[in-house]
Structures are given as C-alpha cells and as structure tokens.
C-alpha cells in the first residue's frame, strides 16, 4: 500500500435534481482527489451540495436526483459505471459513511450489537461468534464503556455521543479505505463533539483510512483536514492544503467565512462581527455569472457576466475567481 497512491479521484461530478419546479444543479462539476490515509475537508454553507456530493460517491442518490456526469475513480475503477450489485459490495466494506443524526441513523428496533454484527456479516466471512467478538472489540475501540452490556442495548438507551460512537464502530467494522463523515459531529454538543473528533482522528491514524470530512464548521476542518475544498452553490470555489486556505484565503467567499468566525478579539475591541452580506441564492434562480457575485464586495461587471473557471493560482492552490483576495488573513 503506497502512501501517496490516489484513492479517490472525483472528476467533474454533476448531480442534478429534476424537480417539478425546475432543475437544481446540486453538484455542478466538482473535482477533487483524496490520497490514501488523507483527510479532505469539504466545507460550505447548508444547501451547497456537500452532502449530495458524498452521497453521489456512494451512489445513494434517489429520485428525483440523478448523477448526470463525471467520474468517481475509486482504486482505479469508476464507481459510476458499476452495477448495483458491485456497488453494494463496496458500500460498507471499502467506503463507509457516518451520518449527521446519530439519533435517527440507528434502527430503533435492533440492539446496537445486532446492527454492527449485520454490517460485519454482510461483507466478511465470519461466524456469528467471531462477529460478536469483533463487535465487542469495535465497541471497545470507539471508547464505549462496558461493551458487553452496550451490545445488548437498544439505540434509545444510549446518549447521542454513544450512538455516534456506535455508528463509527459500524462504519469502521470492515476497515474501510474511505470513510465519509457527513456532518458527523454537528448534532452533538461541543464537549461530545470534541471527543468524537478526537476519536476519529485517532482511528484514522490507527486504521490508515482516508476521510472525506464534510462540515460547515471551519474550526473542525482546521482540526482534521490535510486539504480543504470550499464549496458554494454546488461548485468548488477554493481548493488547497489546509494551511494555505486558512492563512491565505484567495476566494472572497472563503475570506468572508473566515472573517465571520467569532473570536474573543471582537469582544475586547467591540468591533462588530463581519458577516457575508445577503443569502445563498435560490437553487432555482441562480444569478448570472459568478454565483457569489451578488454577495461579493469585489464583484465587477465581468463577475456578473461570466462564471470564472477554477485556476491554479499558486502551486496546489486552486481558486475560482476573477479577483482573488490579495491580502493574507492576518492583515484583516
């Protein structure tokens, strides 16, 4: 297993939703790569297509949604070309997913142990006994105390944090190469959030899996990710390694996001917290030109006319903007 091997290569992925009110381009030409053992943070406001992108990789898009174009190369093979049967073998074993709502992602009528055993038995050739042993190991690994007792408990008997741990145990049960974490910590309170994050970082190092970490919380990505892709209205607007994005944001949107993170500094200086003006445009009425132009303080005529292409501004730092921000973040 080569360290630098590219595990996932998403090329120009397009997922549209064909609703009665029109076509929504939820994911519109998204490209990124994740190497083995690497963490990519996918950041953006709600409704900008982060979840849809991740579900597209798993091929879990339901009607009226449809993957209309692009490629998802996973271990050298295009997932979008696989049959339903083949993709099912990959789901859960090679690519696993953790969902946002630990409260509702576990089936209320089965015990925690049962559900993890199922995930194991679906993909691994183990006996019930071995699967049970492995489940208790997993519960232990994700830091659930008294795993033997928890094994026989129902989801409603566990707290949110515990449930998310159980979800993680289920996700890593088959040692996946890629773990997709879709806002996995969003529904938890901050202390639990920190624990779960710590756990994921820890497991990621132990198992050596790559992680696609989806969130709207910039602070979390800073903790986790090697690379960051910032999305806006279904397109990636900035894509680089985490350090560059944080220290040197080039896209006005990223710049605005980073500026709008509250800090104690503002409290002291009594400066009002800068926010990005306006709202995410309605998916049915996308503005002409750059989708961010109506909210962008730097927008000019060309921005309102044409959609800029994503370009490599600095080495490895891609930006979709005609007027990239020139100041570094410290200068704010």
């Amino acid at each position: 297993m080569e360290k630098n091997e590219i595990l996932v290569d998403v090329k120009d992925l397009k997922t549209y939703f064909f609703t009665d009110d029109g076509v929504v381009e939820a994911v519109d030409g998204v490209s990124f790569t994740i190497k083995r053992g690497e963490v990519l943070g996918l950041v953006g406001e709600s409704g900008c297509g982060k979840s849809v992108a991740s579900l597209s990789i798993m091929r879990l898009i339901d009607k009226p949604g449809k993957i209309v174009g692009g490629e998802v190369i996973f271990k050298g093979e295009d997932l979008l070309k696989k049959t339903e049967e083949e993709i099912r073998k990959i789901r859960g074993s090679e690519i696993a997913m953790i969902f946002q709502e630990p409260m509702t992602s576990l089936n209320p009528v089965f015990t925690i142990g049962n559900q993890i055993i199922e995930a194991i038995l679906l993909h691994q050739d183990l006996s019930e006994e071995e699967a049970k042993k492995r489940t208790i190991e997993l519960l232990n690994l994700v830091g659930i105390p008294e795993p033997e007792r928890r094994f026989n408990q129902y989801p409603h008997e566990l707290s949110g944090g515990m449930r998310q741990r159980a979800m993680i145990a289920m996700a890593i049960s088959c040692n996946p190469d890629l773990l997709i974490s879709d806002e996995a910590t969003t529904a938890l309170d901050v202390t639990i959030q920190a624990q779960i994050l710590e756990l994921m970082k820890d497991l990621q190092k132990k198992i050596g899996m790559a992680v696609l970490f989806i969130t709207h919380d910039l602070a979390l990505v800073a903790e986790m990710a090697n690379n960051i892709a910032v999305t806006y209205t279904g397109k990636i607007v900035e894509y680089s390694d985490a350090r560059s994005v944080f220290k040197n944001p080039k896209h006005p949107y990223t710049y605005g996001l980073l500026r709008s993170v509250p800090s104690l500094l503002f409290e002291e200086t009594k400066v009002e917290l800068p926010a990005i003006e306006g709202m995410v445009p309605s998916p049915y009425h996308m503005p002409q030109g750059c989708h961010f132009s109506p909210r962008c303080p730097f927008a000019t005529d060309i921005c309102r006319r044409e959609m800029p292409e994503i370009e490599e501004l600095l080495a490895g730092h891609y930006v979709r903007c005609f007027h990239p921000v020139k100041v570094s973040k410290e200068a704010i």
């Binding site: 879990l60 099912r88 969902f99 089936n107 209320p108």
Partner: peptide, 28 residues
C-alpha cells in the same frame, strides 16, 4: 425516508434485506 434506511444502504444492504429486516419490524 428514514435515516436508518439510508444508513442500511450505506453498509451495503440490499433492498430486499432493507424491506424485510430493517423496515418491516418498524411497521409491526
């Protein structure tokens, strides 16, 4: 539409399995 139905898909369960094993007990 439930999330555990989606979660079941995400661990690679087939539709038949989801119907009979995951969802039916919830409709009991």
């Amino acid at each position: 539409e439930s999330e555990y139905s989606e979660a079941a898909k995400a661990i690679g369960a087939s539709n038949t399995r989801i119907i009979w094993r995951h969802l039916l007990p919830n409709a009991l």
